[in-house]
């Protein structure tokens, strides 16, 4: 589903964010990406959503080389990727319904279809009763779930999450992760960047670890999680 081949990214100014990163996430897989802040997690996600382009190497999604995607096509690529952000990126002056409906409005769904799908998505994240509220009136966990509803409302085959549990307590974080598991069960590939190691430790998922832009572990090795990173 996501494949990196010898990817390096150097920002203008010489800061090297990624060095020869290689990995492959299979379709339908759920995986975590971890590492210190500044290790290159965000850069890696940005390369997948084409907010940045790699300096060297290839990024492929479903076998398609993203370097062949022109600027005009990026919008269409993003419709295939559900993205979830630590800062939610919700529109605070719109209702929950409008926020979740946004991707469908952009894609030109009919009014009826939009209402149906938004209700279904909010049902999944358990916010059916908050549909007319403003995101401002919701708690942090609820706001994050609105963001998730928006990411999945057009049923993308791939979900990317950047620190989705960043500001949440462990219980709420677990709820969010359970949601991702549900989507994964339904066949969606899920790729989550987080530095919440406690959360990862409680689950047996493939974990990719970045350190100073290099991929240092890939797999279910648990030792690094406690020893190597946070000493």
């Amino acid at each position: 589903m996501i494949k990196f081949e010898q990817v390096s990214k150097t920002y203008p100014g010489g800061q090297q964010a990624l060095r020869k990163v290689d990995f492959h996430i299979e379709p339908g897989e759920m995986a975590f990406l971890t590492g210190h802040s500044g290790a290159g997690k965000s850069t890696l996600l940005k390369l997948i959503s084409i907010m940045e382009r790699p300096t060297v190497g290839k990024v492929l999604i479903n076998g398609h080389d993203l370097s062949n995607i022109q600027r005009k096509q990026i919008a269409y690529i993003r419709r295939d990727i559900g993205m979830i952000f630590q800062s939610h990126q919700l529109l605070m002056d719109k209702t929950v319904f409008d926020n979740v409906a946004l991707p469908l409005v952009i894609e030109g769904y009919s009014h009826k279809e939009i209402a149906k799908r938004v209700h279904a998505a909010l049902e999944m994240v358990g916010l059916r009763d908050k549909i007319k509220n403003s995101p401002m009136m919701l708690s942090g966990g609820e706001q994050q779930r609105v963001g998730i509803a928006r990411a999945v409302v057009n049923k993308p085959p791939l979900l990317l999450a950047d620190e989705p549990t960043g500001n949440l307590d462990p219980k709420l974080s677990m709820e969010i992760i359970r949601l991702f598991e549900d989507f994964n069960q339904a066949g969606v590939s899920v790729f989550i960047a987080t530095h919440d190691l406690g959360l990862i430790a409680r689950m047996k998922y493939r974990t990719l670890t970045l350190k100073q832009g290099q991929m240092i572990t890939d797999g279910l090795d648990e030792e690094f999680q406690t020893d190597d990173l946070y000493v």
């Binding site: 999604i61 479903n62 398609h64 995607i69 096509q73 269409y76 690529i77 419709r79 295939d80 894609e107 030109g108 769904y109 009919s110 279809e113 057009n154 085959p157």
Partner: peptide, 18 residues
């Protein structure tokens, strides 16, 4: 039609409208 995922329909295409 999606660029990356063959067969995945995007947007209004999914609703069968004339």
């Amino acid at each position: 039609m999606s660029i990356l995922f063959k067969g995945r329909v995007q947007g209004a295409q999914i609703a069968q409208i004339s």
